[in-house]
Amino acid sequence: MKVVVCVKQVAQLDEDFELRDDGRDVDPDCVEWDLNEWDAFALEAAVRLGESAAEAEIVVVTVGDDEAEERLRACLAKGADRAVRVWDGGLVDADVMLVARLLAAVVEREAPDLVLCGVQSSDGVSGATGVAMAGFLGLPRVAVVTGIDYDASARTATVERELEGGLVERLRVRTPALLTVQTGINEPRYASRRAIKQAREKPLEELTPADLGLDAEAVARTVASRVTAMDHPPKGDAAELIEGGPDEVAARILAIVEERVG
């Protein structure tokens, strides 16, 4: 079987981050990059599906700048066979729809049995890229999946979908399909030193939108939103700060406990 896993490098803001000169995003020098938490679970799910199949290929795909290569190598060390990175300078402000369209173009080329995404990315928090991609591709999809049981001969997957309040729906979906994977579905593995070394030899392909048949005009046409400004959120009725060292904080907390539930 073949599984494509879409993985994103996410930005963690430094404590004293600053905005870009145009005020529309954070200065990229003020962030640290990490693999999106949800995508680590999606990758692990794919690798396990691969391990239980007679033959399998796991392809990780990202839309990201050259920093993202490190994240792809980490995925290769955890069991992916091959990586694809899509980028050119024009994608710096790519929105959900453009990223989904580019990923869809890669999926079209790869023709996998399953496409796995994370439910959401911790920096973008759109929760939408995977299902948007399924829309572009006309693929069956299930969002917020907490269990996957793939039946290659029937070309279906029996999955669990997590709803609000802890309710879970069991359903069967026709494959090829796209699933967005929720945290907790498995326990992502660590890569061994040997695997990290071997990952350096695994293929990592770099593509531009043009390589995927999307010229500048098509790229511009796909963008469905534009961030025009970013700002600090209004503080509202922010918390009353408890000052002092740990002992003073503890004393104050105990006083509040006494007052409210004492």
Binding site: G127, A128, V131, A132, M133, L163, S225
Partner: peptide
């Protein structure tokens, strides 16, 4: 921005070329 809507609304927005924002 619910679990149900996340399962289909972005797909239609993509197909129909709608402006789109979530959460």
């Amino acid at each position: 921005h619910t679990i149900d809507a996340l399962g289909y609304a972005p797909a239609l927005a993509a197909r129909a070329g709608l402006g789109f924002a979530s959460d």
